[in-house]
Amino acid sequence: MTTPSTGSGQAYAEVIGDPIVQSKSPAIHGFWLGKLGIDADYRACHVSSDGLAEYFRRRKDDLAWRGCNVTMPHKQAVQEHLYSIDQVASAIGAVNTIYPAFDRLLAGTNTDAAGFLEPLREELYQHHLFRMARILGTGGAARAIVAALAEEGFTLVLAGRDPAKARALLDELAPHGEHHAIDLAHFADPTDFPFDDREGCLDLVVNASPLGMRGQPALAFDWSHAPPGAIAYDIVTDPVDTAFLKAARTAGHRTLDGLNMLIGQAALAFERFFGQAPPREHDTELRELLTR
Score class of each variant (00 low, 15 high):
residue 89 A to M: 06
residue 64 A to Q: 08
residue 239 P to C: 09
residue 31 F to P: 08
residue 218 A to T: 07
residue 65 W to E: 00
residue 82 L to S: 10
residue 99 Y to F: 15
residue 173 L to Y: 00
residue 214 R to K: 15
residue 218 A to H: 10
residue 197 D to P: 00
residue 22 Q to M: 07
residue 50 D to C: 12
residue 118 E to H: 13
residue 110 N to T: 10
residue 276 Q to N: 10
residue 269 A to T: 07
residue 188 A to Y: 12
residue 62 D to M: 09
residue 13 A to V: 09
residue 178 E to N: 13
residue 221 F to S: 04
residue 31 F to E: 01
residue 45 C to G: 04
residue 255 T to W: 01
residue 191 T to H: 09
residue 56 F to D: 09
residue 135 I to A: 10
residue 139 G to H: 03
residue 254 R to Q: 14
residue 292 R to T: 02
residue 167 R to V: 04
residue 222 D to R: 06
residue 181 A to G: 03
residue 39 D to T: 13
residue 147 A to V: 07
residue 194 P to Y: 11
residue 5 S to M: 13
residue 135 I to C: 04
residue 120 L to F: 02
residue 270 F to N: 00
residue 84 S to W: 10
residue 179 H to N: 12
residue 292 R to W: 01
residue 217 P to N: 09
residue 75 K to W: 04
residue 66 R to L: 15
residue 241 D to L: 15
residue 165 K to I: 07
residue 77 A to H: 09
residue 204 L to K: 06
residue 211 L to P: 02
residue 221 F to E: 03
residue 17 G to Q: 03
residue 21 V to I: 14
residue 39 D to Y: 09
residue 98 I to S: 05
residue 198 R to S: 11
residue 117 L to T: 08
residue 286 L to N: 00
residue 215 G to T: 10
residue 229 G to N: 07
residue 9 G to W: 10
residue 262 L to A: 05
residue 177 G to E: 10
residue 238 D to Y: 09
residue 248 A to H: 03
residue 188 A to I: 01
residue 157 V to N: 12
residue 279 P to I: 00
residue 32 W to G: 01
residue 275 G to M: 10
residue 149 L to W: 02
residue 140 G to N: 10
residue 142 A to T: 06
residue 207 N to W: 01
residue 6 T to V: 15
residue 179 H to G: 07
residue 269 A to G: 14
residue 12 Y to D: 01
residue 51 G to V: 07
residue 169 L to T: 03
residue 157 V to S: 06
residue 188 A to R: 09
residue 136 L to C: 02
residue 188 A to W: 04
residue 50 D to R: 14
residue 256 L to I: 15
residue 237 T to S: 09
residue 33 L to H: 01
residue 207 N to H: 06
residue 38 I to H: 08
residue 217 P to W: 06
residue 172 E to Y: 00
residue 118 E to S: 14
residue 192 D to N: 13
residue 10 Q to G: 03
residue 203 D to P: 01
residue 289 L to W: 03
residue 156 L to P: 03
residue 216 Q to D: 12
residue 132 M to Y: 09
residue 122 E to F: 02
residue 158 L to E: 11
residue 190 P to H: 08
residue 9 G to I: 05
residue 129 L to D: 15
residue 282 H to D: 11
residue 75 K to F: 06
residue 48 S to W: 03
residue 1 M to W: 12
residue 51 G to M: 07
residue 41 D to S: 15
residue 49 S to A: 14
residue 215 G to S: 13
residue 46 H to Y: 12
residue 58 R to T: 08
residue 77 A to Y: 01
residue 135 I to Y: 06
residue 92 I to L: 12
residue 93 G to C: 12
residue 248 A to Y: 02
residue 100 P to L: 11
residue 6 T to D: 14
